[in-house]
Design a protein around this nucleic acid. Sequence first.
DNA 1: TTCCTTGCAAACGTTTTGCATCGGT
DNA 2: ACCGATGCAAAACGTTTGCAAGGAA
Lengths: 140, 140
Amino acid sequence: MKNDSTLKEAGLKVTHPRIKILELLQSHPESHLSAEEIHNKLVKKEETIGLATIYRVLTQLEIAGLIQKNHFDDTQSTYEITKQHHDHLICTNCGKIVEFVNDDLEKLQEKISQNYQFKLNTHVMTLFGICNNGDCHKKK
Amino acid sequence: MKNDSTLKEAGLKVTHPRIKILELLQSHPESHLSAEEIHNKLVKKEETIGLATIYRVLTQLEIAGLIQKNHFDDTQSTYEITKQHHDHLICTNCGKIVEFVNDDLEKLQEKISQNYQFKLNTHVMTLFGICNNGDCHKKK
DNA sequence: TTCCTTGCAAACGTTTTGCATCGGT
DNA sequence: ACCGATGCAAAACGTTTGCAAGGAA
């Protein structure tokens, strides 16, 4: 229900695919899903929905600021529901993704941008390493 | 000549395409070239070289640590000769890319990784903003 | 009724691969 | 001579687009 007005405010009609995609991403706030994963999940529990629609809706939701697009690797883009600004730590072994916020980092970025006379707009900061979870080596 | 031993040390035969690609990237240390751009530049001044070979060689050179692969956007990957570690500032208006090094940033990344018990391996840090070059708005 | 939205299939741009040939070592 | 490296063409992959049909306002 709440998403209805959210979509309307973004100038988008309230349609079945849009509601479903928004709800899916909202129900997986910590996940970073690709368009294909979203498609698979929706097809698995709903009626037909085209992959092209997924892409079109994701693009619109991103422009509206409701979701965020990431491209951690050069193969697929992933999407997550918009939350507080954060960056990512990725385990190159098990694929685990941890979101973090660090104020010092934000300040430092602003400072670096000023050094080079850039007006900072956004940034991407992704740390790649090995997590030491007990179950790290079991995954994937 | 120097590249000959560099390639051999990487376990790669010294072939014409590999030498040419390495030399091209070395002669443009500040550029971030796509596979297609590399192909165009080589075809323009040399004999035939296949685009597939470009990709194969770039992959090998990257594995050998001789070049670095970037994916600033989700369309094309770009390559640059390996230099001192650095990050990037990108002007979203004119496309200008500035490389920078910041020790505080490196230390902070290490600290953040430790906070989350990650053994940091590499990172990607890209700042997007608007440069205030006098000629910024003229480009592109 | 209007015109935005959708599904499907075809097109697209980048990257990868199969295969026969070529060329370092 | 061996086996890795290459060129070409075809395939693969994620993503976008054209178009006719469908649906929210």
